[in-house]
Amino acid sequence: METSVSLLCLPCAGASATMYLRWRRLLPGWIRVVPVELPGRGSRSAESPLRDFDSLVAQVCAEQADAMRGNFAIFGHSMGALLAYGIACRLRTMGRELPVALLASGSSAPSRRDPARFAGKTDDASLIADLRKQGGTPEEVFASAELMRITLDVLGADYRVCEGFRHAGDAPLPVPLHVFAGHHDDIDAERIRAWSAEAGGVFTLDWFDGGHFFIRHQEAAFLAALSQRLGGVVAGGRHATHALA
């Protein structure tokens, strides 16, 4: 029987943690999915979204202190991957318990962020174009002026969070690092492979068909890989060698 693991899941830019709720019934029972809702969306829509990377990381570390004890892992997609990395780094700086694994999806490595990716994207037209390009937003959102306004306000704030990230060049994290990517994402493959420099131990990279939202369009294959990687960690995969799948 597998050792249970709490999997804290951080959403992508402009999204709510509700994007992970369905995983509770799709993943094995030994993985306890913990969707991490950020200010300004979902059940926290009455709050103002934060626009500063370090402030948001510090707030998540404080709010999720109880969940980040014992056997826990941190997963994030796109902006969520960057936040997951920032949280792990902050936990290390604070001398707190580290996750059994860090799982990053659909994101450039922290050292290879494209500073021009978010610059100047503050007007609605640019944000809507980005939503269309990434292909992860339901048509119901585009059809509703109210939902569109909420989404654009959160997305604009999240882009400022991403734009404000600065890579400190810290030592590699002493935890297993598992990265997932889509073959047809517009992120350059070299920027994704560069995650390996952040791994102080085991590193894997799994590729899937599809674009930026391969985690949705290839959900079954992706969740099977995620379960396998986490299973390897709890079975002692922390000591495995680097692997590129």
Rank of each mutant, 00 (worst) to 15 (best):
191 R>M: 12
167 H>E: 08
180 F>E: 10
183 H>M: 08
159 Y>I: 11
169 G>Q: 06
167 H>V: 01
208 F>K: 05
162 C>T: 10
147 L>W: 12
230 L>P: 03
239 H>V: 03
135 G>L: 08
173 L>M: 06
218 Q>E: 15
163 E>G: 15
171 A>P: 06
146 E>Q: 06
176 P>Q: 02
156 G>I: 02
236 G>V: 03
168 A>L: 06
186 D>V: 11
234 V>K: 04
194 A>T: 04
153 D>I: 04
136 G>H: 07
235 A>P: 00
165 F>K: 07
175 V>S: 05
198 E>Q: 12
163 E>H: 13
218 Q>W: 01
179 V>E: 14
190 E>S: 15
199 A>L: 08
157 A>G: 07
197 A>V: 11
157 A>I: 07
151 T>C: 13
157 A>N: 09
151 T>R: 14
198 E>I: 00
151 T>I: 01
191 R>L: 01
221 A>G: 05
189 A>Q: 12
209 D>F: 00
138 P>W: 09
222 F>H: 12
204 T>K: 04
236 G>A: 05
156 G>A: 05
245 A>F: 14
148 M>T: 13
200 G>C: 04
170 D>N: 10
149 R>V: 03
234 V>L: 07
197 A>M: 02
135 G>K: 05
211 G>W: 07
183 H>C: 12
244 L>I: 15
188 D>S: 11
155 L>E: 09
